[in-house]
């Protein structure tokens, strides 16, 4: 199928882009990497009247440390995240998730801003953003504002961004020395959207979990925090009985639905297995190292 007729505007700046958005009488869409938007248009699931290409706005690029955070420009491509030494050392959870995003061809075009703005509940980066409670930078052409990830993902493909606002950057907190993280997903083929996936980040005090955030994706209309499982694990040393309690708590955290390939019960079961396995893999600081 071919996409319907659409007007195209290449913006040189954010204000340029927002102005074009505001003056469009029909449905305008920002185009970055195009990896979701263009596919949807080619299927005629989306038929925007105007595409505003923001891929050439330099201000939306770059990965840099700003105080206790890493600012990642919205146009940063998945492949850049995968190879960035700054991200590898300071946002290891994001680095761990990046190889799971689709395939190299898509990673060479797709952008982190696009992924988070699109808010696909099966995508990896929104889950990572929620696990780390990243700050989402939104630019309306005149000013920027920040929304925490936990307030950003509202519903299926629905976010706290106002019409016309451009997601200009994502700010991730720099990992602390006592923080450990893990990421995994179950997909029938490598690179596919997962049946279920999980991102976990935990702060330890010695062997004890001070704080843990567990985010599942592909289990609902947004990435989902497993608050009850988190509570079950906080203050524990993640021994097998703690993990079992967290698995039991998961039933209250997640309520996946059936889809054409996988039933809710299967998804729930796989989430539980994944949780146990990933908690087991969480590189807990060894007692010896702590005592030293």
């Amino acid at each position: 199928m071919k996409a319907g007729d659409v007007a195209y505007f290449r913006a040189q700046s954010v204000s340029d882009a927002v102005a074009a958005f505001r003056s469009c009488e029909g449905d305008a869409r920002y185009l970055a990497g195009g990896q979701s938007l263009l596919a949807a248009m080619n299927l005629r699931l989306l038929t925007p009247d105007l595409l505003i290409d923001i891929a050439h706005i330099d201000a939306l690029r770059g990965i840099e440390r700003r105080g206790g955070e890493i600012r990642i420009g919205a146009l940063t491509r998945h492949a850049e995240i995968l190879s960035s030494p700054i991200i590898a050392s300071h946002v290891p959870l994001l680095a761990a998730a990046a190889p799971w995003v689709a395939h190299p061809a898509i990673r060479n075009k797709g952008t982190i801003g696009g992924s988070i703005a699109f808010a696909d509940p099966a995508s990896e980066f929104p889950a990572v953003a929620l696990a780390l409670n990243a700050r989402i930078e939104l630019d309306n052409g005149d000013s920027v504002r920040f929304v925490e990830a936990q307030d950003f993902f509202l519903d299926l493909y629905e976010t706290a961004a106002e019409p016309g606002e451009i997601l200009s950057a994502v700010w991730f907190p720099v990992a602390t020395p006592d923080q450990r993280c893990t990421f995994d997903e179950l997909a029938r083929r490598r690179g596919d959207y997962a049946i279920v996936g999980v991102a976990i980040v935990a702060d330890f005090s010695g062997e004890i979990v001070d704080r843990i955030r567990i985010v599942f994706f592909s289990v609902g209309s947004t990435p989902v925090r497993a608050l009850r499982a988190e509570a079950a694990l906080t203050g524990t040393a993640l021994v097998d009985t703690d993990i079992e309690l967290a698995q039991q708590a998961l039933a209250g955290d997640l309520s996946p639905s059936d889809d054409v390939q996988v039933s809710a019960a299967t998804r729930m079961h796989l989430a539980s297995v994944l949780l146990r396995r990933q908690l087991g893999k969480l590189p807990v600081p060894t007692p010896k190292a702590v005592r030293a």
Partner: peptide
């Protein structure tokens, strides 16, 4: 043989 069918064969899920 999908994961779900294997799990059903094993009796793990309905």
């Amino acid at each position: 043989m999908t994961p779900q069918r294997i799990l059903r064969a094993l009796g793990t899920v309905q």
